[in-house]
């Protein structure tokens, strides 16, 4: 099954990529600065924000994270296209 991807798909995905990127960067920083509470606070804010964005994305475009509930009880969505290298 192929469906062409909407502009919103790319926009929503990029927003998640940006927020998750801040998480990756803060995690590496905290790995060598484990007592910087300001950075931990920022990490926690972004972690919650990432969760929110991903839940919204998945309800619109299908699963992103392994282990989140399948929206449709008749069709397994996880294994459907597109895969990251196809978009």
């Amino acid at each position: 099954m192929t469906h062409s991807l909407s502009k919103e798909y790319y926009r929503d995905l990029e927003e998640i990529q940006a927020v998750d990127f801040v998480l990756f960067e803060l995690a590496l920083y905290l790995d060598t600065h484990p007592t910087d509470s300001q950075a931990i606070k920022q990490f926690n804010q972004y972690a919650l924000y990432s969760l929110k964005l991903k839940t919204a994305f998945e309800s619109l475009h299908g699963p992103l994270r392994f282990g989140t509930p399948n929206r449709n009880e008749k069709v397994w969505e996880w294994s459907q296209s597109p895969w990251p290298w196809q978009v």
Partner: peptide, 11 residues
């Protein structure tokens, strides 16, 4: 490890 269906950066 678990997989996320997204790239780290939009290629």
């Amino acid at each position: 490890w678990t997989y996320e269906k997204k790239l780290m950066y939009p290629v």
